[in-house]
Design a protein around this nucleic acid. Sequence first.
DNA 1: TTGAAATTCAAACGCTCGTTTGAAGCGAAA
DNA 2: TTTCGCTTCAAACGAGCGTTTGAATTTCAA
Lengths: 215, 215
Amino acid sequence: MSNLDQARVASRSTETTRAALIKAATSVFAEYGYDGGSVRLITQRAMANQAAVNYHFGGKDGLYREVLIAATRAFEENAFLDPEELDALSPEDALRRYLHQFLLPLVKRDRVSRFLRIFAWESVQPSEVFSAFIAHSPPRIFRLAERVVRRFLPQDASAETVTFAMLWLAQQPMFFVRDAERLAQPPFSLKFDEEALERLVDTLAGLSLRGLAGV
Amino acid sequence: MSNLDQARVASRSTETTRAALIKAATSVFAEYGYDGGSVRLITQRAMANQAAVNYHFGGKDGLYREVLIAATRAFEENAFLDPEELDALSPEDALRRYLHQFLLPLVKRDRVSRFLRIFAWESVQPSEVFSAFIAHSPPRIFRLAERVVRRFLPQDASAETVTFAMLWLAQQPMFFVRDAERLAQPPFSLKFDEEALERLVDTLAGLSLRGLAGV
DNA sequence: TTGAAATTCAAACGCTCGTTTGAAGCGAAA
DNA sequence: TTTCGCTTCAAACGAGCGTTTGAATTTCAA
């Protein structure tokens, strides 16, 4: 076996641990955010040793960076919402599609939903790792929101107005995803099943489209 | 001097320390949230001993509870936005007034603004203290938002719809207040002076009132 | 089978956190 | 002046955090 093969085999075992750690870290960071997610809990869920994080990723931040890379890759895959797909829809349908996609974590606990939750955390407790990560490429949720919003705004809208409207739209689903657990408690007591999600999409789409005066 | 007088004098000195701690805690919790705000920083700013927090308030949570009580009192004072005042305005003006009031922290660093910032933190990192505190009386920002929203919604709107719309409105200003510092950085680079605040109020009021289709 | 490299492991380190401790300081009554 | 309760203080405690350490184990080419 060549040295290359040895490296490959060695890295196969390495990859197992790395993958388990990234997976566990994704769920832990989705639940508790970067600061609140502890290395001990991650390694416990990954059934790995604490030191493995530092051995394989150089530290907690290195592991987080890998999670963000995986998240970016998942978002870039056309499995997720596609800019071209949005453009093919009418502005109204694009808006509905956007809201529905980013509210999905309310009822699904899949991988993409966890990534969205991490983004929701970052929208509130930005970590240095994340800030550096997105420094020169705004996260997709903002790029998509801008795309949706631009089709409604007049051509001569100022950059500031576009930014206001884009942020306004982008943070609407993030709020519900982020605060889902709190909204499930009194005094709100909102439980999100598929049907409640549809009603939420309807309500938000209606409000965003036509505003309060249009209901 | 009677025992009562002695107690009064003793409590005067006590009140000095307590007031300094509550004031310092308000600013620290406004800056860093409950979890992120350390007792050491609070006592340092209050020029008090660390142990004073436990002596006077029984612990960090007791001090926080006092801050929340002070915040509630400040909000209940008619210095702040008054439900009756809102009702006296047209629905549109009430909406503008609401947004303007809750976006004020962007340009002012006064006491009420700090309380609003604490609420913004809680909307994202709910502490047990806060949850217990508001358990049976929703914070005013939500009660006011419901009041504003109800005047637009049809009488037969479901409770869930009202809640959706209320949350939708309430979190709009909270987002900008909470993320002000992040929005000041690239890639957004939004600086909020008085004029930018007015433009933001205009934009949000327009979007909330007429939606994207109305711009 | 052997030896060296890669990986895992339990334990400990250094740090910050909220809290506790017991002595010292203080003001007012006796 | 002495005494007593209230308040302050420096120091330490215990728990949790990310990280480091050095030995044990595993892996696999030779």
